[in-house]
Amino acid sequence: MKRASTNTAPLSSADRRFYAALAVLGGSYGVMVAALLLADLAYTTPGHLWTSLQSSEIRYAIRLSLLSCTLTTLMSLWVAIPLGYLLARRRFPGSVLVDLLVDIPMVLPPLVIGLSLLILFQTAPGRMIERVLPVTYAVPGVILAQFMVSCAFAVRTMRTTFEQMNPRAEQVALTLGCGRAEAFWRVALPAAKRGVLAAATLAWARSLGEFGPILVFAGATRFKTEVLSTTVFLELSVGNLEAAIAVSLLMVMAAVIALLLLRRWGGEPNLGQAGPA
């Protein structure tokens, strides 16, 4: 996404007052965020951080988080690329309903998603799946809970990406000998590469921060379904504030890296929607 060029012309005193007022009004939020991070940093020391991160529980949570977030990202892209393209390029019976359904996980309270998953897997089809592959209170449950929310953000990112691309290039590809599928593979998808990377980063960061649905649907069992977000909760619940802060800082670092990658790849999601649930 291209940004409008920033105006760097010299300012009059009235302009300066105007921009100063904006900076004061809006900047207070930025100051608050910076203060939160600084407070976390000030509370701990590198030694504390290192010791906490050496614990086997936290190391397990890091490994499971990396695994589940990566799988969730792949699954999200698997769904988001075709669905985003379909919604961007075609109007079909029920497309408005599909569009609405896909957005629902973004606005539902995270706990409700977890509860709904729990209920779904108590139905007959859910129990059948459970007999083959245990999902509830197991690692697949962690991945499914993350996927349910992350996928919605990936779909929206891919849809916006394809909507911003002029379909003319794909039409030209059709006249040059491609069928629809070939035009998609040869033209649309390569042109959407930055959007795919942005959707992947967003899905990964979103699933790393997911908490509510995981707690309800997969639980927070040590050495079983514990991921970084649930570690913060578990460490807090036993009063181990140093460990909770160490894991929080680790997540802050991952989030900052994800945001930098998102900026680099041009995806500018609504960050309010991308925060931990």
Binding site: V172, A173, T175, P190, A191
Partner: peptide, 18 residues
């Protein structure tokens, strides 16, 4: 379109960016 054998040049060149 693929079978018609028509070369099409749109108003904006619509080159393939990659």
């Amino acid at each position: 379109p693929a079978r018609r054998g028509i070369g099409f040049v749109p108003q904006e060149p619509s080159l393939f960016p990659h």
